[in-house]
């Protein structure tokens, strides 16, 4: 969808023009600068931004320069909202210099992450001057860069609050409280999906889902009444069921999505042919 199409769909926001690296682009007033750049395919590296979550500003990779009164000022593009006439430079020498050091810090912090290596290489950084952190007991396989996306998805989106930050400063890690198996984990796997460095691991074993990175939290899976397959975490199903209308509930409660599809089709046919229950 082009920007004009989105706007013509009835959004009330005022249209503004921003200049990025000398080229003019249209955007909604107060839109997040980074999201404008992403839409317009202007490369700005970023690790902690997700449109559905509150601005967080932790990875610092998305810093760009904003020109105000002739002076350049470094800001994070994921927390900057665009205004009319905003002038942005994404790859000025200052930004490049500091961003390179940040990449070096990431290469040392998450030395096993291929995603980080590839991203850094795209911006010309292939080596780090800093001591690499290797911790063989790390449940995130030395790939975590503490962007907080998993923690925020778990809290803000799922409302589960199963994982959080433990310790502070350079000792910060993400895990369950006291590194004990979590009773709040729904097993939804949002953390796995949202992790930019593929650090979070989970595995389904028969009737259980094991959140390997989160203190081996085990979440029981629900079994389909029709086909016998284990299809979704019980706790997640229960959370979703609590939100739907009772008539639907009956239908969804017992079957996996595939069987449910078949069931509905069958019902429709029966209804059409007059054999409804």
């Amino acid at each position: 969808m082009t920007h004009e199409e989105v706007s013509s769909m009835g959004t009330a926001a005022k249209l503004v023009t921003v200049t990025i690296n000398g080229k003019k682009y249209g955007a909604d007033e107060d839109e997040i600068l980074l999201s404008v750049a992403v839409r317009e395919k202007i490369a700005i590296p970023h690790l902690c931004y997700e449109a559905s979550l509150d601005p967080y500003g932790a990875c610092r990779l998305c810093m760009v320069e904003v020109v105000r009164h002739g002076k350049r000022e470094m800001v994070t593009s994921c927390t900057t909202r665009v205004t009319d006439g905003l002038e942005v430079v994404t790859d000025g020498p200052e930004v490049v210099k500091h961003r390179s050091i940040l990449f070096e810090l990431y290469l040392a912090e998450a030395p096993k992450s291929e995603v980080i290596k590839a991203m850094a290489a795209r911006y010309g950084v292939t080596k780090t001057r800093f001591l690499k952190k290797i911790d063989t007991t790390d449940s995130l396989g030395n790939k975590c860069i503490l962007c907080g996306l998993c923690v925020r998805a778990c809290n803000e989106l799922m409302g589960a609050g199963a994982i959080g930050f433990v310790n502070r400063g350079p000792y910060t890690v993400v895990n369950t409280p006291y590194f004990e198996a979590s009773r709040d984990c729904l097993g939804c796997g949002a953390c796995v999906k949202v992790c930019p460095t593929n650090a979070v691991e989970m595995e389904d074993q028969k009737n259980e889902r094991i959140m390997k990175s989160w203190s081996n939290t085990r979440v029981p899976l629900a079994q389909c009444d029709c086909c016998g397959r284990y299809y979704a975490p019980k706790a997640l199903a229960a959370t979703i069921l609590a939100r739907v209308t009772p008539s639907l509930k009956e239908e969804i409660a017992r079957c996996c999505p595939e069987c449910r599809g078949k069931l509905i089709a069958k019902k429709e046919i029966l209804a059409k042919t007059g054999g409804a229950r």
């Binding site: 500003g57 990875c59 990431y106 001591l131 860069i145 310790n167 502070r168 400063g169 350079p170």
Partner: peptide
């Protein structure tokens, strides 16, 4: 400062640690 860093952003969390090293 390294001990008091909250650990949220990389320059402070990792940068100060390496400055200390």
């Amino acid at each position: 400062a390294t001990g008091e860093s909250c650990g949220k952003c990389v320059p402070c969390r990792e940068g100060l640690k390496h400055a200390l090293l």
